[in-house]
Design a protein around this nucleic acid. Structure first.
Lengths: 205, 205, 205, 205
DNA sequence: ACTTTCGGGACATCCCGTTGCT
DNA sequence: AGCAACGGGATGTCCCGAAAGT
């Protein structure tokens, strides 16, 4: 075979990790999570098969790294929720935060975790202190609500932990099982937030 | 090969469908949804590989039939919720119903659907009456809350649809991403229900 | 399952052999000989799978029986060639006989024999004195030419055996590898016969 | 499994195509064409099953490539026939050329094409230059006879096209349906050539 | 460092011959 | 006698991890 016909070799590819991550993301959005394979990822990325193993060791490790990366991203855009305590309205802040999760990042995470719990449990446990990806989001909501409680905008005896759980769960579920009407997801989320807030909000609402 | 060592042939196996379904269920509870395969199912069931294809044509059809069957079962055990309107307490009825979903049937469905959305699409397409699995449960909760509204135990202006969505979503999410402490799932569900009810319940609570 | 919904059982099906033979014939004309299977035959015939084995024991025996049957048919329409010696013209008689072979029967036989020589060698050897299906046709041509030789319409020193071989071979080959122009097959056969006859015909031609 | 027991991996195997082709050739000579499978080929070649699909994509493409390769080879050894016009004797040249086809290459091609006509169709479609395998050989004979005609060693009104068809057909048929006595094939071919030549040869024979 | 290739294994599908039920 | 079902095996295809080459 003529060398001139072959793809260049030995050339450092910039951002291999991110290229592979994005390929995996596209696949998870387009096809079933069960069909996700290392082969499919490299093919989608237009890279050589060996690359994935060179960079991540094996496919499972790739998936862990992928989940951790996307989790970090989701947490970053969600992390400033606690700092918004006292500003705007409780319902508004929660809705904004929840809406920000209705993107592909979180959907991909949900599908992956549901499809391969064992792989991700192992790797997440190994690489980070965060016990579970969901708890990361719940914790942010919980922290926020705690501050609001201190500010008196949430009743003292409100079960803010349960509220956080319900809110995050609803977001995830809306992602996993999309409604026929896409627009509706946003509306439903807004209304669920309202119901939850009405159950915990202080008299000053 | 000695005939005496071989399993009898031509003998109709009773309840092949249910045997295969239960095997799939065990696998989905024990291992990753991504690892579910036709061979794994027949191996778990202790049956010949060809059996699955003899009865269902192909693996996708098997998964479809499996989803429909388990869906029907879940709906059956959930369908009497509306008839309980006016009895007990609103929170109690909702909690009971939600708890009844915390079983293997629903867990298996959630994992499978999250891992292979296309299977769900096929199931719905094949059996339109089933509509969407989520809406089936949500509808039951909604119907129940509607009756309670008519009875005055739920406020007239309460957003009962959003409440139903949040409740079902939380159940599903608790199943998909189990907490470290299993006992906690039940407690969390109870508390989430309480929060939701506190947001919608009439003054007579 | 309700008995009334099932196909009648225990009812003797008339001409099962011929039904299966015709199904096999259709398949061999339509698809590759390598794809011929007992399953495909019964499916094409619209009969139960077990039927083939009930009647023929196994698939190989079915193929033998099929070949023998079609061979008998081809021989019947070819067998009267010797009796036509002395009538018409030599070239005309040979051409007529050759043309009669340009039908599906012979094509099917050729494909089958080429595809599974061992199976047919075994079965033919077991069931008939005819050493080889081809020789059956060659013998007819040879017998005819012998009579014409006695009648003086074919030269005494002509190699009528080689002529028979060439004629039958050409027919078979035209069947196996059809020309783009179907009409041409007939013409080519006619011209080949002419060439062969010109090489052996007596001066009285 | 011990690494030392395993065959080296990642080591490029030289001439994989030819190794697989030869394995297929051996199988077609030894067993029924209907039993030819990708696994059988790699097993016979002593290579991994995946190799065939790595190099050819799928089994049909492999067969296609195989046919084209062997066809080219047969044509190469047959192509110099026209250049022999005017030398030796017409019968001798034709016989020599025909005999050269009585080898494994042509036999294998005949069996394969008779067993799987669709493969041939695909080969032709993929490499239009190859036209039809039969016509390739027939064309060589025809060209040769044309030259002999110009040299006066073949009668001007001889049907040299039909002669070419009959000659090639006989060779193919002798290969496909071998006579009990192998030695006889050569003799029969020689005699058939003689008959054909006697029908077309010029007076100077 | 990136690419290609290899080996072995797994999966979905299909096939054959047998066996029990009707 | 005919039908449906079963068991085991084979086939085409694909995948993963490893080990070369460039």
């Amino acid at each position: 075979m003529l060398a001139v016909l072959m793809a260049p070799r030995g050339l450092a590819i910039p951002d291999v990790h991110e290229q592979l991550f994005q390929a995996a993301e596209r696949l998870l959005l387009r096809e079933d999570a069960a069909d996700l394979s290392g082969r499919a990822v490299t093919r989608e990325a237009g890279l050589a098969v060996g690359l994935l193993h060179n960079h991540f060791g094996d496919f499972d490790s790739f998936l862990s790294a992928f989940v951790l990366d996307r989790l970090r991203r989701a947490a970053a855009s969600f992390g400033d929720l606690p700092s918004r305590a006292g500003t705007g309205t409780v319902a508004g802040n929660l809705t904004d935060a929840a809406q920000s999760l209705l993107g592909p990042d979180t959907l991909v995470l949900s599908r992956l975790v549901a499809s391969r719990p064992s792989v991700l449990a192992r790797s997440i446990h190994a690489h980070t202190a965060a016990a579970h990806p969901r708890s990361l989001l719940e914790t942010a909501v919980f922290s926020y609500l705690q501050r609001e409680q201190q500010l008196g905008r949430v009743e003292d005896d409100a079960d803010i932990e349960a509220t956080a759980v319900a809110l995050v769960a609803t977001v995830h579920q809306l992602l996993l099982m999309p409604r026929s009407d896409e627009q509706a997801a946003s509306d439903v989320l807004l209304r669920v937030t309202a119901v939850l807030v009405s159950g915990i909000a202080g008299r000053s609402r």
